[in-house]
Amino acid sequence: MTHPNTEFLTNKIMLEFSKTLELFGLTTLESRLFAYLYLSKEPLTLDEMSEALGKSKTSMSTSVRSLSELNLVSRVWKKGIRKDLYQANTQLFKIFMSTYIKKWIDASNRQKTSLEEIYESIDVNKDHQESKEAVQNINHRLYDIIEFHKDMENLFSNIKL
């Protein structure tokens, strides 16, 4: 029985893991880069990342910056090495879920605020009698949608890590 070599195994894991990471809004390249850094034993330079993934150093720099802003990657220092080194932060569940929950709370809050502005602008008594009932129905549905957003915001706030 033969064992797959590490490069083949790493590529296979990166491919599958990056599919999961894309569910959290990362680009394909960001997902592949994070997976590669996560699987690497040592911190890597932009040149090493570029060579490993077959992408330009500029693409690596842009992706590392995005991952750093999400607290998924950190710059590290090693004595005697003048280039910047990067490594993946290893608390996957906490980092991804915190980021994901924050995005949901922010998005839900923005939408709720916009919907509340619409709700406040509706005057159910202003229209003709025959359309008054239709406006009241829309107003009632809008209220339910706003409540849905409030419930979502509360749910994610309660599970915040």
Rank of each mutant, 00 (worst) to 15 (best):
E120S: 10
L155E: 12
G25W: 09
N139D: 10
E120H: 10
K83F: 03
L72C: 06
E51R: 12
P4F: 11
A35V: 04
R65D: 14
I159H: 01
S98A: 10
I122D: 05
L142S: 02
M49W: 03
S68D: 08
I146T: 02
M60W: 02
S31D: 04
L21E: 04
D106K: 10
L33K: 04
N139R: 06
L142Q: 02
I146R: 03
T62C: 01
Q129S: 13
I118D: 08
E133F: 09
Y100G: 01
H140S: 11
Y119A: 01
L115M: 15
L39F: 07
T113I: 14
D123A: 00
I159W: 08
F8V: 12
T20R: 11
E30C: 07
K112M: 14
I101F: 14
L142Y: 03
L29G: 08
A88R: 05
E16A: 14
T20E: 13
K160T: 02
S18C: 06
M60H: 02
R110T: 10
S18P: 05
E69V: 00
I105D: 03
K150G: 05
L29W: 03
K102A: 11
M152G: 07
T99C: 00
S56E: 06
F24I: 08
I159D: 00
R65H: 13
E51Y: 09
M49H: 01
I159L: 08
N109S: 14
N71F: 12
K78Y: 10
K102L: 05
T58Q: 13
H3Y: 13
N137L: 15
S50W: 01
S31Y: 09
L72H: 00
K160C: 04
D47G: 09
N158T: 08
N109Y: 04
E7V: 11
R32E: 12
Y143W: 11
K12E: 14
E153F: 04
I145K: 08
N158Y: 11
M14I: 15
G25H: 09
K126L: 14
M152V: 12
S131D: 09
L29R: 14
V135L: 12
D144T: 06
M97K: 08
F96N: 03
R32Y: 07
R32V: 07
K94H: 06
N158A: 10
E116N: 08
Y38T: 03
E130M: 10
I101Y: 12
P4I: 14
T99F: 10
E117L: 11
G80M: 05
H140T: 08
R141S: 07
E30W: 05
T45W: 01
K79F: 13
V73T: 04
E116G: 05
F34N: 00
S56Y: 02
Y36G: 01
L21S: 04
